[in-house]
Write a protein that binds this DNA or RNA. Structure first.
Lengths: 205, 205
DNA sequence: CATTACAGAGAACAGTTGTTAACTACATGG
DNA sequence: CCATGTAGTTAACAACTGTTCTCTGTAATG
């Protein structure tokens, strides 16, 4: 299917990745709508014009970052929902999975949380689309569980959305909390999830 | 207490308000971190240097906007929690209060939702502080209700935070939804709140 | 081996940015 | 009524922005 690509395309992808990495770094202290093209090329160590070989605009770069960031989030979310064990164990595992992901990819989380409501329409749309995708997957996973017997599609979607939003908010809270507060953030997040799970158990009837 | 202030200070406050209004308008299509000082003065119709008579920087302007936006949100939140009637009636009323607030102050909601995780540290901090204030008030209101008998302080705070976050997210969703989708957004938000309320009822024991 | 495609460099453009200093007009307080 | 304080103006600054056009080196192609 995909054979080893020539040293030319390889170098190009390498540079492109350097753009993404540099941008992600710069976006820790600002929003995408204030990210300048020259700023990025300077950080990469390349001429301003080289930017155009890879992206039409910084908004385009942002859309590419959405793919990367939410791509890395994908396995985390699946792992979160499909864990085995009883409800409390599943929740604990989910929260610590989130905590780990934030530790390993802080810039990705920051970017998504920031630009989800950010000033660049195309990026907001890209994030919304991917999050809808996630929600659908979570919904499918939830549907498999015995607790979901008798649930309508709409209600399952509602619950899945609630979980997904909660996960992103939890991740973002981890990100901004000082190291010594991480444990408390985890506890509050756990109790939130637990309350939602209880609501789920008593939803019908 | 506050007698009529001189025509001089009155004019100053008027100009200051013009800055806030203009900025809020400009921020519908960008984030605070990309808002330029000259951009704002141009929109107000005033010389760039006049800006410094009112704010140190655009970040400062942002902090002032937080006060204004969350000040307008304040009565809405109180009204939301302290409504009378049974649980479902209260939820319906809360959701339509939110919908109305979004209709009347869209720019405020957009600003808060956008800058809550935005690129300007001082503004993020100001929003977090005010939201914590709100959460405390909601917690106090919840504590008065009979359903909260036997609840610990920590759990009440957890629940209050869950409600507050949910309200802001609902508001932001209303904002981005097309007019014809507003009703469905309201329904999903209602069901989310209902599920949380059910979780609340069965939290103990 | 000759030709082509193309990633990146370099220079230049008009327009923008934040900040400074010295100014003007005028409401206010003594 | 005069002296003072101050909201807003004007002009100028160096630095920065996105974009265009031209050029160079070299991997890929036949």
């Amino acid at each position: 299917m995909s054979h080893t690509l020539g040293i030319r395309q390889a170098q190009k992808q390498k540079t492109r990745q350097a753009f993404l990495d540099a941008a992600l770094g710069l976006l820790e202290e600002q929003s995408l709508s204030s990210l300048g093209l020259r700023e990025v090329t300077r950080a990469v160590g390349v001429a301003p014009t080289a930017f155009y070989r890879h992206f039409h605009s910084t908004a385009d770069l942002g859309v590419a970052l959405v793919e990367e960031a939410l791509g890395s989030l994908h396995p985390m979310i699946s792992g979160t929902v499909s864990a085995s064990g009883d409800s409390d164990e599943r929740i604990d595992r989910a929260v610590s999975l989130i905590a780990r992901h934030v530790r390993e990819h802080p810039a990705h989380i920051r970017f998504i949380a920031r630009e989800r409501n950010g000033g660049v329409q195309k990026v907001r749309a890209a994030i919304a689309e991917q999050m809808d995708r996630f929600t659908d997957e979570v919904k499918a996973e939830l549907a498999k569980q015995p607790e979901s017997a008798g649930w309508s599609d709409d209600d399952l979607l509602m619950l899945a959305g609630l979980y997904v939003d909660q996960m992103l908010m939890t991740a973002s809270t981890f990100l901004e909390a000082a190291p010594e507060d991480q444990e408390q953030v985890a506890q509050v997040a756990t109790r939130r999830m637990r309350l939602i799970s209880i609501g789920r158990r008593h939803w019908l009837g």
